[in-house]
Design a protein around this nucleic acid. Structure first.
Lengths: 213, 213
DNA sequence: TTGGACATGTAACGGGTTACATGATTGA
DNA sequence: TCAATCATGTAACCCGTTACATGTCCAA
Protein backbone atom coordinates (compact mmCIF):
# COMPACT_ATOMS: atom_id res chain seq x y z
CA UNK A 1 0.00 0.00 0.00
CA UNK A 2 2.83 2.34 0.90
CA UNK A 3 5.65 3.90 -1.06
CA UNK A 4 7.95 1.27 0.35
CA UNK A 5 6.21 -1.54 -1.49
CA UNK A 6 5.93 0.39 -4.70
CA UNK A 7 9.67 0.99 -4.60
CA UNK A 8 10.39 -2.67 -4.00
CA UNK A 9 8.05 -3.56 -6.84
CA UNK A 10 9.63 -1.15 -9.29
CA UNK A 11 13.10 -2.36 -8.33
CA UNK A 12 11.97 -5.92 -8.98
CA UNK A 13 11.51 -4.95 -12.62
CA UNK A 14 15.01 -3.59 -12.96
CA UNK A 15 17.74 -1.99 -10.83
CA UNK A 16 17.13 1.76 -10.80
CA UNK A 17 18.17 5.08 -9.32
CA UNK A 18 15.80 7.33 -7.40
CA UNK A 19 15.48 9.43 -10.50
CA UNK A 20 14.66 6.42 -12.66
CA UNK A 21 12.00 5.33 -10.20
CA UNK A 22 10.35 8.72 -10.28
CA UNK A 23 10.11 8.55 -14.08
CA UNK A 24 8.90 4.98 -14.05
CA UNK A 25 6.13 5.79 -11.61
CA UNK A 26 5.25 8.84 -13.67
CA UNK A 27 4.66 6.67 -16.73
CA UNK A 28 3.33 3.50 -15.19
CA UNK A 29 1.41 5.35 -12.53
CA UNK A 30 -0.54 7.09 -15.26
CA UNK A 31 -2.07 3.78 -16.25
CA UNK A 32 -2.46 2.35 -12.85
CA UNK A 33 -4.39 5.20 -11.38
CA UNK A 34 -1.80 6.13 -8.79
CA UNK A 35 -0.32 9.52 -9.40
CA UNK A 36 3.39 10.18 -9.13
CA UNK A 37 5.59 9.98 -6.06
CA UNK A 38 7.70 12.94 -5.01
CA UNK A 39 11.46 12.89 -4.57
CA UNK A 40 10.91 13.95 -1.01
CA UNK A 41 9.32 10.59 -0.60
CA UNK A 42 11.58 8.45 -2.73
CA UNK A 43 15.10 9.30 -1.61
CA UNK A 44 14.64 9.07 2.16
CA UNK A 45 12.71 5.85 1.68
CA UNK A 46 15.50 4.36 -0.42
CA UNK A 47 17.95 5.16 2.38
CA UNK A 48 15.71 3.45 4.89
CA UNK A 49 15.30 0.38 2.73
CA UNK A 50 19.05 0.18 2.35
CA UNK A 51 19.59 0.44 6.10
CA UNK A 52 17.15 -2.39 6.57
CA UNK A 53 19.07 -4.45 4.07
CA UNK A 54 16.19 -4.81 1.65
CA UNK A 55 18.01 -3.09 -1.16
CA UNK A 56 21.63 -2.49 -2.07
CA UNK A 57 23.24 0.61 -3.54
CA UNK A 58 25.79 0.53 -6.30
CA UNK A 59 27.59 3.72 -7.27
CA UNK A 60 28.13 3.67 -11.00
CA UNK A 61 28.58 5.84 -14.04
CA UNK A 62 25.68 5.99 -16.46
CA UNK A 63 26.44 7.81 -19.71
CA UNK A 64 28.96 10.13 -18.06
CA UNK A 65 26.88 10.92 -14.99
CA UNK A 66 27.37 9.25 -11.65
CA UNK A 67 24.27 7.75 -10.18
CA UNK A 68 23.31 5.45 -7.37
CA UNK A 69 21.60 2.34 -8.67
CA UNK A 70 19.64 0.27 -6.19
CA UNK A 71 18.73 -3.37 -6.51
CA UNK A 72 16.83 -5.80 -4.31
CA UNK A 73 18.73 -8.06 -1.93
CA UNK A 74 17.54 -11.55 -1.10
CA UNK A 75 15.83 -10.06 1.93
CA UNK A 76 14.18 -7.50 -0.33
CA UNK A 77 12.83 -10.14 -2.68
CA UNK A 78 11.33 -12.12 0.15
CA UNK A 79 9.86 -8.97 1.70
CA UNK A 80 8.23 -8.19 -1.64
CA UNK A 81 6.86 -11.70 -1.92
CA UNK A 82 5.47 -11.53 1.59
CA UNK A 83 3.67 -8.34 0.79
CA UNK A 84 2.27 -9.74 -2.46
CA UNK A 85 0.95 -12.75 -0.58
CA UNK A 86 -1.05 -10.55 1.83
CA UNK A 87 -4.69 -10.21 0.79
CA UNK A 88 -5.09 -6.79 -0.82
CA UNK A 89 -7.47 -4.35 0.83
CA UNK A 90 -10.48 -3.13 -1.07
CA UNK A 91 -9.62 0.08 -2.91
CA UNK A 92 -11.12 3.39 -1.82
CA UNK A 93 -11.43 6.07 -4.45
CA UNK A 94 -12.26 9.61 -3.57
CA UNK A 95 -13.73 10.71 -6.84
CA UNK A 96 -14.39 14.41 -6.60
CA UNK A 97 -16.84 14.27 -9.50
CA UNK A 98 -18.83 11.55 -7.82
CA UNK A 99 -19.00 13.54 -4.60
CA UNK A 100 -20.06 16.66 -6.42
CA UNK A 101 -22.74 14.69 -8.17
CA UNK A 102 -24.11 13.66 -4.77
CA UNK A 103 -24.10 17.17 -3.37
CA UNK A 104 -25.32 18.92 -6.47
CA UNK A 105 -29.03 18.59 -5.89
CA UNK A 106 -29.02 20.33 -2.53
CA UNK A 107 -26.37 22.93 -3.23
CA UNK A 108 -26.96 24.13 -6.78
CA UNK A 109 -29.89 22.38 -8.43
CA UNK A 110 -30.55 25.27 -10.78
CA UNK A 111 -27.17 25.06 -12.54
CA UNK A 112 -27.02 21.89 -14.60
CA UNK A 113 -24.70 23.45 -17.15
CA UNK A 114 -21.61 23.52 -14.95
CA UNK A 115 -22.16 19.89 -14.04
CA UNK A 116 -22.34 18.99 -17.71
CA UNK A 117 -19.01 20.73 -18.21
CA UNK A 118 -17.48 18.68 -15.41
CA UNK A 119 -18.72 15.51 -17.08
CA UNK A 120 -17.42 16.56 -20.45
CA UNK A 121 -14.03 17.20 -18.92
CA UNK A 122 -14.07 13.79 -17.32
CA UNK A 123 -15.13 12.15 -20.57
CA UNK A 124 -12.30 13.81 -22.38
CA UNK A 125 -9.72 12.83 -19.76
CA UNK A 126 -10.87 9.22 -19.76
CA UNK A 127 -10.70 9.15 -23.53
CA UNK A 128 -7.15 10.52 -23.54
CA UNK A 129 -6.11 7.91 -21.02
CA UNK A 130 -7.74 5.16 -23.06
CA UNK A 131 -5.87 6.22 -26.17
CA UNK A 132 -2.61 6.43 -24.26
CA UNK A 133 -3.25 2.87 -23.17
CA UNK A 134 -4.10 1.50 -26.53
CA UNK A 135 -0.85 2.69 -27.99
CA UNK A 136 1.09 1.51 -24.96
CA UNK A 137 -0.06 -2.06 -24.93
CA UNK A 138 1.47 -2.83 -28.32
CA UNK A 139 4.38 -0.41 -28.42
CA UNK A 140 6.98 -3.20 -28.59
CA UNK A 141 9.27 -1.27 -26.26
CA UNK A 142 7.90 -1.99 -22.81
CA UNK A 143 7.94 -5.28 -21.01
CA UNK A 144 4.40 -6.47 -20.40
CA UNK A 145 3.79 -9.71 -18.55
CA UNK A 146 0.82 -11.99 -19.00
CA UNK A 147 -0.88 -10.48 -15.98
CA UNK A 148 0.19 -6.98 -16.85
CA UNK A 149 -1.67 -7.38 -20.12
CA UNK A 150 -4.79 -8.63 -18.39
CA UNK A 151 -4.66 -5.73 -15.96
CA UNK A 152 -4.37 -3.27 -18.82
CA UNK A 153 -7.25 -4.81 -20.69
CA UNK A 154 -9.33 -4.57 -17.58
CA UNK A 155 -8.38 -0.94 -17.26
CA UNK A 156 -9.41 -0.30 -20.82
CA UNK A 157 -12.77 -1.91 -20.18
CA UNK A 158 -13.23 0.34 -17.15
CA UNK A 159 -12.32 3.44 -19.11
CA UNK A 160 -14.75 2.54 -21.87
CA UNK A 161 -17.45 2.12 -19.24
CA UNK A 162 -16.57 5.51 -17.76
CA UNK A 163 -16.85 7.17 -21.14
CA UNK A 164 -20.12 5.44 -21.90
CA UNK A 165 -21.54 6.61 -18.60
CA UNK A 166 -20.27 10.15 -19.00
CA UNK A 167 -22.23 10.25 -22.24
CA UNK A 168 -25.29 8.81 -20.65
CA UNK A 169 -25.26 11.24 -17.73
CA UNK A 170 -24.60 14.23 -19.98
CA UNK A 171 -27.56 13.18 -22.10
CA UNK A 172 -29.79 13.03 -19.07
CA UNK A 173 -28.58 16.36 -17.73
CA UNK A 174 -29.54 18.02 -20.99
CA UNK A 175 -33.11 16.92 -20.39
CA UNK A 176 -35.25 18.91 -17.95
CA UNK A 177 -34.66 18.19 -14.27
CA UNK A 178 -36.46 15.21 -12.82
CA UNK A 179 -37.90 15.04 -9.30
CA UNK A 180 -35.89 13.01 -6.77
CA UNK A 181 -35.90 9.25 -7.25
CA UNK A 182 -37.15 8.93 -3.70
CA UNK A 183 -37.45 11.39 -0.85
CA UNK A 184 -39.69 10.12 1.95
CA UNK A 185 -38.96 13.06 4.26
CA UNK A 186 -39.01 15.84 1.73
CA UNK A 187 -35.34 16.37 2.46
CA UNK A 188 -34.54 18.09 -0.80
CA UNK A 189 -37.43 20.49 -0.42
CA UNK A 190 -36.28 21.35 3.08
CA UNK A 191 -32.69 21.74 1.96
CA UNK A 192 -33.74 24.17 -0.72
CA UNK A 193 -35.63 26.16 1.88
CA UNK A 194 -32.76 26.13 4.36
CA UNK A 195 -30.45 27.35 1.66
CA UNK A 196 -32.75 30.17 0.67
CA UNK A 197 -33.15 31.35 4.27
CA UNK A 198 -29.43 31.14 4.99
CA UNK A 199 -28.55 33.12 1.89
CA UNK A 200 -31.16 35.76 2.62
CA UNK A 201 -29.98 36.17 6.19
CA UNK A 202 -26.44 36.54 4.97
CA UNK A 203 -27.54 39.18 2.50
CA UNK A 204 -29.34 41.01 5.27
CA UNK A 205 -26.28 40.97 7.49
CA UNK A 206 -24.12 42.37 4.72
CA UNK A 207 -26.52 45.16 3.98
CA UNK A 208 -26.42 46.22 7.60
CA UNK A 209 -22.69 45.79 8.08
CA UNK A 210 -23.35 43.13 10.67
CA UNK A 211 -20.29 41.26 11.83
CA UNK A 212 -20.70 37.59 12.64
CA UNK A 213 -19.68 37.11 16.30
CA UNK B 1 -11.45 16.95 -2.10
CA UNK B 2 -10.77 17.46 1.60
CA UNK B 3 -12.73 16.64 4.72
CA UNK B 4 -13.88 20.23 4.82
CA UNK B 5 -15.88 19.91 1.63
CA UNK B 6 -17.32 16.58 2.57
CA UNK B 7 -18.56 18.09 5.83
CA UNK B 8 -20.14 21.01 4.03
CA UNK B 9 -21.75 18.61 1.59
CA UNK B 10 -23.17 16.38 4.28
CA UNK B 11 -24.48 19.38 6.18
CA UNK B 12 -26.18 20.57 3.01
CA UNK B 13 -28.32 17.44 3.18
CA UNK B 14 -29.43 18.11 6.72
CA UNK B 15 -28.20 19.81 9.90
CA UNK B 16 -26.15 17.30 11.84
CA UNK B 17 -23.88 16.75 14.83
CA UNK B 18 -20.33 15.46 14.50
CA UNK B 19 -21.60 12.08 15.55
CA UNK B 20 -24.33 12.12 12.90
CA UNK B 21 -21.82 13.04 10.24
CA UNK B 22 -19.57 10.16 11.17
CA UNK B 23 -22.49 7.74 10.77
CA UNK B 24 -23.63 9.31 7.53
CA UNK B 25 -20.18 9.05 6.02
CA UNK B 26 -19.95 5.47 7.25
CA UNK B 27 -23.08 4.53 5.31
CA UNK B 28 -22.82 6.78 2.30
CA UNK B 29 -19.08 6.45 2.10
CA UNK B 30 -19.48 2.73 1.65
CA UNK B 31 -21.15 3.34 -1.68
CA UNK B 32 -19.05 6.19 -2.78
CA UNK B 33 -15.75 4.47 -2.39
CA UNK B 34 -14.42 6.79 0.29
CA UNK B 35 -13.96 5.07 3.59
CA UNK B 36 -15.03 6.65 6.85
CA UNK B 37 -13.70 9.79 8.47
CA UNK B 38 -12.40 9.69 12.03
CA UNK B 39 -13.70 11.81 14.87
CA UNK B 40 -10.21 13.16 15.25
CA UNK B 41 -10.79 14.69 11.87
CA UNK B 42 -14.41 15.72 12.15
CA UNK B 43 -14.65 17.63 15.42
CA UNK B 44 -11.65 19.92 15.02
CA UNK B 45 -12.70 20.63 11.45
CA UNK B 46 -16.23 21.55 12.57
CA UNK B 47 -14.72 24.03 15.03
CA UNK B 48 -12.64 25.55 12.29
CA UNK B 49 -15.58 25.83 9.93
CA UNK B 50 -17.57 27.54 12.66
CA UNK B 51 -14.76 30.01 13.32
CA UNK B 52 -14.70 30.83 9.66
CA UNK B 53 -18.43 31.43 9.75
CA UNK B 54 -19.25 28.69 7.23
CA UNK B 55 -21.37 26.75 9.66
CA UNK B 56 -23.32 27.58 12.78
CA UNK B 57 -23.68 25.55 15.97
CA UNK B 58 -26.94 25.10 17.79
CA UNK B 59 -26.95 23.42 21.19
CA UNK B 60 -30.09 21.36 21.47
CA UNK B 61 -31.60 18.34 23.10
CA UNK B 62 -32.17 15.31 20.91
CA UNK B 63 -34.18 12.52 22.56
CA UNK B 64 -32.91 13.41 26.02
CA UNK B 65 -29.27 13.89 25.06
CA UNK B 66 -27.65 17.23 24.47
CA UNK B 67 -25.91 17.54 21.17
CA UNK B 68 -24.40 20.25 19.04
CA UNK B 69 -26.13 20.47 15.70
CA UNK B 70 -24.36 22.33 12.94
CA UNK B 71 -25.95 23.88 9.88
CA UNK B 72 -24.60 25.82 6.93
CA UNK B 73 -24.63 29.60 6.99
CA UNK B 74 -25.14 31.64 3.84
CA UNK B 75 -21.37 31.85 3.58
CA UNK B 76 -21.20 28.09 3.93
CA UNK B 77 -23.69 27.52 1.12
CA UNK B 78 -21.81 29.79 -1.22
CA UNK B 79 -18.50 28.16 -0.27
CA UNK B 80 -20.01 24.79 -1.11
CA UNK B 81 -21.33 26.07 -4.44
CA UNK B 82 -17.94 27.52 -5.30
CA UNK B 83 -16.29 24.23 -4.64
CA UNK B 84 -18.86 22.33 -6.69
CA UNK B 85 -18.29 24.69 -9.59
CA UNK B 86 -14.55 23.93 -9.65
CA UNK B 87 -13.63 21.32 -12.26
CA UNK B 88 -13.07 18.06 -10.41
CA UNK B 89 -9.63 16.50 -10.62
CA UNK B 90 -9.23 13.10 -12.19
CA UNK B 91 -9.47 10.43 -9.51
CA UNK B 92 -6.42 8.43 -8.50
CA UNK B 93 -7.01 5.00 -7.05
CA UNK B 94 -4.29 3.06 -5.40
CA UNK B 95 -5.62 -0.40 -5.91
CA UNK B 96 -3.38 -2.79 -4.07
CA UNK B 97 -4.63 -5.73 -6.11
CA UNK B 98 -3.80 -3.99 -9.34
CA UNK B 99 -0.31 -3.18 -8.12
CA UNK B 100 0.26 -6.72 -6.98
CA UNK B 101 -0.89 -7.94 -10.35
CA UNK B 102 1.78 -5.80 -11.99
CA UNK B 103 4.56 -6.99 -9.70
CA UNK B 104 3.54 -10.62 -9.60
CA UNK B 105 5.41 -11.82 -12.65
CA UNK B 106 8.83 -10.68 -11.46
CA UNK B 107 8.42 -11.44 -7.77
CA UNK B 108 6.53 -14.72 -7.54
CA UNK B 109 5.66 -16.13 -10.96
CA UNK B 110 5.52 -19.67 -9.67
CA UNK B 111 2.66 -19.08 -7.26
CA UNK B 112 -0.53 -18.44 -9.20
CA UNK B 113 -2.70 -19.91 -6.49
CA UNK B 114 -2.32 -17.06 -4.01
CA UNK B 115 -3.13 -14.56 -6.72
CA UNK B 116 -6.30 -16.47 -7.53
CA UNK B 117 -7.25 -16.24 -3.86
CA UNK B 118 -6.77 -12.48 -3.93
CA UNK B 119 -9.03 -12.23 -6.93
CA UNK B 120 -11.67 -14.42 -5.36
CA UNK B 121 -11.63 -12.20 -2.29
CA UNK B 122 -12.02 -9.14 -4.48
CA UNK B 123 -14.85 -10.74 -6.42
CA UNK B 124 -16.65 -11.54 -3.23
CA UNK B 125 -16.21 -8.04 -1.81
CA UNK B 126 -17.46 -6.44 -4.99
CA UNK B 127 -20.44 -8.72 -5.00
CA UNK B 128 -21.31 -7.84 -1.41
CA UNK B 129 -21.08 -4.15 -2.22
CA UNK B 130 -23.27 -4.60 -5.28
CA UNK B 131 -25.94 -6.33 -3.24
CA UNK B 132 -25.76 -3.64 -0.57
CA UNK B 133 -26.37 -1.13 -3.33
CA UNK B 134 -29.25 -2.88 -4.93
CA UNK B 135 -31.17 -2.94 -1.71
CA UNK B 136 -30.24 0.64 -0.92
CA UNK B 137 -31.44 2.23 -4.10
CA UNK B 138 -35.05 1.27 -3.50
CA UNK B 139 -35.22 1.18 0.28
CA UNK B 140 -37.80 3.96 0.45
CA UNK B 141 -36.08 5.41 3.51
CA UNK B 142 -33.21 7.41 2.10
CA UNK B 143 -33.41 10.54 0.06
CA UNK B 144 -32.01 9.92 -3.41
CA UNK B 145 -31.85 12.74 -5.92
CA UNK B 146 -32.05 12.39 -9.67
CA UNK B 147 -28.28 12.61 -9.92
CA UNK B 148 -27.75 10.46 -6.87
CA UNK B 149 -29.64 7.71 -8.63
CA UNK B 150 -27.58 8.07 -11.77
CA UNK B 151 -24.38 7.97 -9.76
CA UNK B 152 -25.51 4.80 -8.02
CA UNK B 153 -26.47 3.11 -11.25
CA UNK B 154 -23.08 3.97 -12.63
CA UNK B 155 -21.50 2.46 -9.55
CA UNK B 156 -23.47 -0.70 -10.00
CA UNK B 157 -22.33 -0.94 -13.59
CA UNK B 158 -18.75 -0.56 -12.45
CA UNK B 159 -19.13 -3.23 -9.81
CA UNK B 160 -20.64 -5.63 -12.31
CA UNK B 161 -17.68 -5.00 -14.59
CA UNK B 162 -15.28 -5.65 -11.71
CA UNK B 163 -16.96 -8.95 -10.94
CA UNK B 164 -16.99 -9.98 -14.57
CA UNK B 165 -13.30 -9.25 -14.85
CA UNK B 166 -12.43 -11.01 -11.62
CA UNK B 167 -14.04 -14.09 -13.13
CA UNK B 168 -12.21 -13.66 -16.37
CA UNK B 169 -8.83 -13.25 -14.71
CA UNK B 170 -9.39 -16.16 -12.35
CA UNK B 171 -10.24 -18.30 -15.34
CA UNK B 172 -7.05 -17.33 -17.09
CA UNK B 173 -4.94 -17.89 -14.00
CA UNK B 174 -6.22 -21.43 -13.75
CA UNK B 175 -4.76 -22.11 -17.18
CA UNK B 176 -1.03 -22.76 -17.51
CA UNK B 177 1.19 -19.67 -17.42
CA UNK B 178 1.65 -17.80 -20.67
CA UNK B 179 4.87 -16.15 -21.82
CA UNK B 180 4.99 -12.33 -21.51
CA UNK B 181 2.81 -10.40 -23.93
CA UNK B 182 5.90 -8.50 -25.04
CA UNK B 183 9.40 -8.27 -23.62
CA UNK B 184 11.86 -6.79 -26.09
CA UNK B 185 14.75 -6.69 -23.59
CA UNK B 186 14.18 -10.02 -21.89
CA UNK B 187 13.42 -8.11 -18.72
CA UNK B 188 11.41 -10.87 -17.09
CA UNK B 189 14.09 -13.43 -17.78
CA UNK B 190 16.69 -11.13 -16.26
CA UNK B 191 14.49 -10.38 -13.28
CA UNK B 192 14.08 -14.07 -12.61
CA UNK B 193 17.81 -14.50 -12.73
CA UNK B 194 18.48 -11.52 -10.46
CA UNK B 195 16.04 -12.88 -7.98
CA UNK B 196 17.62 -16.32 -7.99
CA UNK B 197 21.09 -14.90 -7.45
CA UNK B 198 19.97 -12.54 -4.70
CA UNK B 199 18.19 -15.30 -2.83
CA UNK B 200 21.16 -17.65 -3.16
CA UNK B 201 23.57 -15.05 -1.91
CA UNK B 202 21.32 -14.37 1.05
CA UNK B 203 21.16 -18.07 1.79
CA UNK B 204 24.92 -18.25 1.64
CA UNK B 205 25.32 -15.36 4.06
CA UNK B 206 22.97 -16.96 6.53
CA UNK B 207 24.76 -20.27 6.40
CA UNK B 208 28.03 -18.54 7.27
CA UNK B 209 26.62 -16.26 9.95
CA UNK B 210 27.53 -13.28 7.85
CA UNK B 211 26.14 -10.00 9.09
CA UNK B 212 25.04 -7.46 6.50
CA UNK B 213 27.21 -4.36 7.01
C1' DT C 1 -25.95 -2.21 37.34
C1' DT C 2 -23.81 -2.80 33.53
C1' DG C 3 -22.82 -2.80 28.84
C1' DG C 4 -23.74 -0.51 24.71
C1' DA C 5 -25.15 3.23 21.94
C1' DC C 6 -24.75 8.30 22.08
C1' DA C 7 -21.58 12.22 22.13
C1' DT C 8 -17.25 15.07 22.14
C1' DG C 9 -12.86 15.88 22.27
C1' DT C 10 -7.29 15.98 22.04
C1' DA C 11 -2.27 14.83 21.71
C1' DA C 12 0.94 12.08 19.40
C1' DC C 13 2.15 10.14 15.46
C1' DG C 14 2.60 8.90 10.44
C1' DG C 15 3.08 9.32 5.80
C1' DG C 16 3.17 12.05 2.37
C1' DT C 17 3.87 16.67 -0.51
C1' DT C 18 5.88 21.34 -1.25
C1' DA C 19 9.32 24.19 -1.63
C1' DC C 20 13.77 24.86 -1.48
C1' DA C 21 18.82 23.92 -2.26
C1' DT C 22 22.55 22.13 -4.90
C1' DG C 23 25.32 20.68 -8.58
C1' DA C 24 26.92 18.11 -12.81
C1' DT C 25 26.49 17.32 -17.79
C1' DT C 26 24.90 18.08 -22.36
C1' DG C 27 23.26 20.08 -26.46
C1' DA C 28 21.66 24.28 -28.87
C1' DT D 1 27.07 30.25 -22.31
C1' DC D 2 22.69 29.18 -21.17
C1' DA D 3 18.76 26.41 -20.68
C1' DA D 4 17.28 21.81 -20.09
C1' DT D 5 17.86 17.45 -18.27
C1' DC D 6 19.96 14.44 -15.02
C1' DA D 7 20.56 13.67 -10.15
C1' DT D 8 20.09 13.97 -5.04
C1' DG D 9 18.66 15.60 -1.09
C1' DT D 10 16.17 18.06 3.22
C1' DA D 11 13.18 20.86 6.34
C1' DA D 12 8.74 22.60 6.94
C1' DC D 13 4.32 21.64 6.55
C1' DC D 14 -0.39 19.43 5.84
C1' DC D 15 -3.77 16.42 6.50
C1' DG D 16 -5.36 12.74 8.37
C1' DT D 17 -5.54 8.50 11.68
C1' DT D 18 -4.73 6.23 16.19
C1' DA D 19 -5.13 5.97 20.66
C1' DC D 20 -6.63 7.77 24.48
C1' DA D 21 -9.81 10.31 27.70
C1' DT D 22 -14.34 11.48 29.32
C1' DG D 23 -19.00 11.48 30.20
C1' DT D 24 -24.29 10.65 29.52
C1' DC D 25 -28.46 8.08 28.83
C1' DC D 26 -31.06 3.92 28.09
C1' DA D 27 -32.42 -0.76 28.05
C1' DA D 28 -31.75 -5.50 29.56
Amino acid sequence: MSVKHILLGILSWRPSSGYDIKLEVEVQGRQMGWGSISYGSIYPQLKKLEEKGLIQAQYTEKSGRKTTIYDLTGKGWTELSNWLAQPPSYPTTRDELYMKLSFWETAMPEDRHTLIQHLELRRQESLALLEHFQQWINNDRSAISEMGKIAMEYDQARLRLDIEWSDRIIEQLKQPAQPPHQDPNRLFEKARHRRKCALQQDGYKKRNGDQPQ
